[in-house]
């Protein structure tokens, strides 16, 4: 499925992040190509969250570099990261459940008739865009005035992804999009990711715990353990127990079985 990659959309080189004496990330290098889903796997505490926080501009790296489309970038705030096209969809999705789909879609970036916060919103245009953008990646909403709180988890995820793409995300970071969802909703989210993948120009970094989901959708894998990359490869390279083993932080399945057999 992976096209012959020319240039990675986003690349990190030897990213190191230290919090005082604690090394959260110890030299992580990563290449993500457009039109690809890059699964970032690892156990709790492996450094996945730290990595996405570096990529989305929440933290600055202690050393190492991030480059987007070949150009080195550094972020002072999450705003900078989204300006160069890195859109992060957090687990909590950053949605206001009491407000409508449209109001959430354009939250903080409302279209107004005249500039300034007191300009009237172009409500009809915003309704149309929100519905169109969500339809593009697979969900037809009947009523853009519907409160987000009444939508299913999968629909909310789609809303957050559609929003990130509409506002110029070239790199989409999805933080455990399938956790805390039912089976059906999980499939819906994976379908949405697949549709984004097919758009071809967006690189997706998928953080997940779920090996099955990663195997279903990802083109490339990177495994983190204790702040370091312990393995990576394309979906063809990795077979069978490799993924399980790497997800468990490099331990052999046999060892795990032994550990369980106390």
């Amino acid at each position: 499925m992976a096209k012959s990659p020319k240039q990675p959309l986003i690349e990190t080189k030897d990213l190191v992040k230290k919090f005082g004496s604690f090394t959260a990330l110890n030299g992580v290098s990563l290449k993500v190509y457009p039109g690809e889903v890059h699964a970032l796997l690892g156990d709790n505490g492996a450094g996945k969250s730290t990595l996405i926080k570096l990529l989305s501009g929440v933290f600055a790296p202690t050393s190492g570099s991030i480059s987007v489309e070949g150009k080195a970038v550094s972020f002072a705030s999450p705003r900078n990261a989204s300006d160069v096209g890195i859109g992060t969809v957090y687990q909590d999705l950053a949605l206001n459940p009491l407000a409508s789909v449209t109001r959430n879609f354009f939250l903080g970036r409302e279209l107004t008739h005249f500039g300034g916060p007191f300009g009237l919103m172009k409500m009809n245009e915003m309704h149309r865009i929100a519905a169109d953008e969500m339809a593009k990646i697979g969900i037809n909403i009947a009523d853009p005035e519907q409160a987000v709180g009444t939508m299913s988890g999968g629909q909310r995820q789609t809303l957050a992804i559609a929003r990130a793409i509409y506002f110029g995300a070239k790199v989409l970071i999805l933080d455990e999009p399938t956790s805390a969802l039912g089976q059906r909703q999980q499939m819906e989210v994976l379908k949405t990711i697949r549709r984004v993948q097919k758009l071809g120009n967006i690189a997706i970094i998928l953080i997940t715990h779920n090996e099955i989901h990663a195997r279903l959708i990802a083109d490339r894998f990177t495994f983190l353990s204790l702040g370091e990359v312990i393995g990576s490869g394309t979906s063809e390279d990795l077979k069978g127990d490799d993924i399980k083993r790497l997800m468990a932080g490099g331990a052999e399945i046999g060892d795990l079985a032994k550990e369980l057999a106390v």
Partner: peptide, 8 residues
Amino acid sequence: TQAGNWIY
């Protein structure tokens, strides 16, 4: 207005 959306 946008300000209203921000308040909500």
